[in-house]
Amino acid sequence: MNRCGHWQLVMMLTLLIAVPARADKRGQEIIEKLDRLQTAAADQYFVFDMTTYQEGKSPTTMTLEVYIKGTRLRRVKFLAPGDLKGTRMLVRALDQMYIYLPAYRRVRRIASHVRDQGFMGSAYSYDEMAIVTYADVFDCDLAAESDSHYQLKCRRRPGQSFHYEVMEMDIRKDNHHPDQLRFFNAKGQKLKTDYRNDYHCRDDGRTCTPYTMKLVDHSRGDLYTVMKLKDWKVNTGIKDSFFTVRALQRDR
């Protein structure tokens, strides 16, 4: 799998140099279908254990719950450890984010520059935590196809501020969800690899999610973070008013 990935990476980079970035129709259809599937549920609720591993150091674990609705509304609340417990975040748009810090007992608007900061010391950045749909951020080509997978090669669209210039995504044909994403910078260096396994589906198979995700940060000595899904619900009926500053302040 890895060898195959490297070979395809070399091929893709060659193509990248030779061909100006422009999405092919097939690749764009595949990524748009993925977006539709990922947002098929009206809303979703997750509880994750998020553990970060680094060689020679003790792993650190956080527990967080996440609500998403539509393509942009998102709320995150930390349940553990104690120093983060009660910290809440609201994303209404990539340029409209808020954080509630229990120590200060107030909501603070945060600007999108914080997306440059890592997410609580984990391998995840705010961008990876926040992205819900891909077709609006990337133009994708179908780079390769096997019996089981599509492999997309995607370049960031002009005007998009997502951190990574290039993304490769391996999409399973059985459930049309990715099991591996690779992020590159403009020089073609692989910065992160995102593994997504153990998919479960709900809502008559219309909505699927991985129960295990592993993100490896190659720029930090292959530090990696594993997110294990502890609870997942779809179509809970949560209202738009839950995704407001008012609700964030009051922890509704």
Binding site: Q96, A111, S112, G159, S161
Partner: peptide, 20 residues
Amino acid sequence: MAGEIPLDWIDESLLGIGYR
């Protein structure tokens, strides 16, 4: 008043600066 001032008109890679 709080929000952010976009800087992508200078360079696409620049994220918004926060102001209050």
